[in-house]
């Protein structure tokens, strides 16, 4: 249900004028939720930013997710 919680926060933030960058782990659910823009990651549930302790990869995923909304 994590994607739905994130999706609902996204919906009301966007409607309040706050831009959102949404990370998606399971795109099939994200699409079902009709979240209009999301940054898809190839990782499994529990690891939204990839392998734990890989600081640089975690940082890059954050960077890419934020830059994605400008595309």
């Amino acid at each position: 249900m994590c994607p739905q919680v994130v999706g609902l926060v996204q919906k009301y933030c966007e409607e309040s004028g706050i831009v959102c960058s949404v990370i998606s782990i399971i795109d099939e659910i994200t699409t079902q939720l009709k979240i209009p823009r999301f940054y898809s990651v190839p990782y499994l549930m529990g690891f939204p930013l990839g392998p734990p302790h890989d600081f640089n990869n975690q940082k890059q995923i954050c960077k890419k997710a934020l830059e994605f909304i400008y595309q």
Partner: peptide
């Protein structure tokens, strides 16, 4: 969540003048 928590979260974000929220599910 929609009626009680999200409005408070949005109030925080607006008060803090946040421009972008990075939303992370697990």
């Amino acid at each position: 969540l929609i009626k009680k928590s999200i409005p408070k979260i949005i109030e925080i974000l607006i008060n803090d003048e946040v421009d972008i929220v990075l939303l992370i599910p697990v």
